[in-house]
């Protein structure tokens, strides 16, 4: 009873609109004095060659070496949706698979379930078996031990299905410079903020984003 009353008293804490996003997880933009073509990955010592021409979201690990030439804009909507699956509009079940992360992507992904973000209001849920899943969220660099598990998870999912690559490691190899994983939806960031993740997920199922 105690916790029921506490829950009622505390009230709903879900955000109506995005607010309070950490700057170094958002889009970077050239803010320097010189020409943009003048600064390159080499000149800024970018560890993942994420500069030039322009800023390449997929590769950026937010080391801030390009600061102040490049500065965060606060725009978190960086996800790229290559395939929209409208059939998941109102019911979208995710099976996350960690193929070699540092743990930050895992935590940020779990945090989209926090009351502030609340993925369920968009009809998005986590599931613990690929059989029930509509999308496979893959995070981290592809390690030897997890390659088979990833293949099995993909095989185990019923059609139609989406593959969503989350974080710089999965989509470009990140700081570790390993292979990239082919995916229908790409969510850049190191790690991507819960806002970025939610936005991309909503667009992947045919919504307007978050």
């Amino acid at each position: 009873m105690n916790w029921f009353l506490k829950g009622v008293r505390k009230g709903v804490r879900t955000e109506k609109t995005p607010s309070d996003v950490a700057p170094w997880s958002t889009e970077l933009q050239f803010k320097g004095i010189e020409e943009e073509s003048g600064v390159t990955s080499e000149s800024l010592r970018c560890p993942t060659s994420a500069i030039g021409p322009g800023w390449i979201a997929e590769r950026c690990v937010y080391c801030r070496r390009c600061y102040p030439h490049y500065q965060p804009t606060g725009n978190h909507r960086m996800g790229v949706v290559k395939r929209v699956e409208k059939r998941f509009q109102r019911s979208f079940y995710l099976y996350p698979i960690d193929v070699g992360t540092c743990g930050a992507c895992n935590t940020e992904l779990r945090l989209i379930a926090s009351p502030q973000h609340d993925l369920t209001r968009f009809g998005i849920f986590f599931t613990n078996t690929p059989r029930h899943a509509d999308a496979l969220i893959v995070m981290g660099i592809m390690t030897k031990g997890m390659r088979e598990a990833f293949r099995r998870a993909y095989e185990a999912m019923p059609e139609p299905k989406l593959v969503i690559a989350l974080g710089a490691c999965a989509i470009s190899g990140g700081i570790f410079q390993t292979e990239k994983i082919e995916a229908d939806v790409v969510i850049p960031g190191c790690p991507p903020s819960p806002y970025t993740i939610l936005d991309a997920l909503i667009r992947a199922k045919g919504g307007r984003g978050w």
Partner: peptide
């Protein structure tokens, strides 16, 4: 809602079944 969330639609089970 008691768990501090807006939470899913009351029709969510139907959406799930339909999908």
């Amino acid at each position: 809602v008691v768990s501090l969330r807006r939470a899913q639609s009351v029709l969510q089970p139907y959406y799930d079944l339909f999908k």
